[in-house]
Write a protein that binds this DNA or RNA. Structure first.
Lengths: 157, 157
DNA sequence: CAAGATACGTCAATATGGCTGACATAATTT
DNA sequence: AAATTATGTCAGCCATATTGACGTATCTTG
């Protein structure tokens, strides 16, 4: 049994999301809002259906959170060009600012953790995390992440 | 920004806990039960207060799930020797069996993920996860985990 | 063109797992 | 004897998830 790694994952993830959780409180948002905003920002033009695949929640659950983000101007919708039923999602400047703030906190933690680790070690960590993910039925976003080569995601800052 | 690692952590953890989630459904339990049972099994004789520190939830929240685990015979309480106010917690055989089943699923995933990674690489992964954890105010369990050297936790199987 | 499928939104009800505040009891400490 | 500590419990609230049903606009297909 890999007790050590099981527990390390638990604590590492707890503290990792804890960074963002604190900041989110000030905005009256929860983790759900963060996840939605994050993926919309990273994959601009994401459809509602894509988001449901990625987050693995129901449309009803997403609806509530998404509505708030739309109402408060963190996200905007645009009707799809090819298919006008689709509502493509984009983060506004306001939304981008919040995502950047939250990702900054998490990036700081990651950089601290990688401080004593070589570039090769960092690749090993990345390789491990990738391999922990189910590969059988990747959705659109996961495909992008798992696919090696040039990122299709929003340009890296 | 470490967008890649942020997202890999999200997906990796999602699928990692997903393994156990499915199994837990069959027992009518949720993630909360798993966490409690896991730590009680791993650190036998844990006090209620310790558990609250580790899980970072309130005593009322813990109360509900703990009561179920006690009622259904997955955990037993024993009065503390030195301090008779304390209720020391222990997993029963039934509890151990469930923990083992769940940890087995997660261990399988970890082993798969470490498949192509050398022993040194595995240490790097461990080092990274450790360094992701807050070290400022470690509780009793975290101390054990973060402390190098012989484990004080339940003997490794 | 009509029928059906699809993308999305929404209403209603429910469950889980967090939370706060208040209060009770037993045991230990001062 | 009084205060503190460890635990339990009651009552209610909130966030986030669920299922099922239904509505509407739009695209696709026979």
């Amino acid at each position: 049994m890999r007790w050590d790694i099981i527990e390390l994952l638990f604590f590492a993830y707890r503290d990792f999301v804890g960074d963002a959780d604190h900041e989110l409180e000030a905005f009256g948002f929860g983790r759900a809002h963060h996840r939605v905003l994050h993926f919309v920002h990273r994959y601009p033009g994401l459809k509602v259906a894509d988001l449901l695949d990625v987050l693995r929640i129901t449309k009803q659950s997403l609806g509530r959170v998404l509505k708030q983000l739309l109402d408060e101007g963190y996200i905007v919708q645009k009707t799809g060009n090819n298919d006008r039923r689709q509502r493509l999602l984009f983060a506004t400047a306001k939304g981008e600012a919040l995502v950047a703030k939250l990702a900054g906190l998490q990036t700081d933690r990651i950089n601290r953790a990688l401080g004593d680790i070589s570039p090769e070690g960092t690749d090993t960590v990345r390789q491990f995390l990738r391999a922990m993910i189910d590969h059988d039925d990747p959705d659109k976003v996961l495909e992008t992440i798992l696919k090696p080569g040039p990122a299709t995601a929003k340009e890296q800052a």
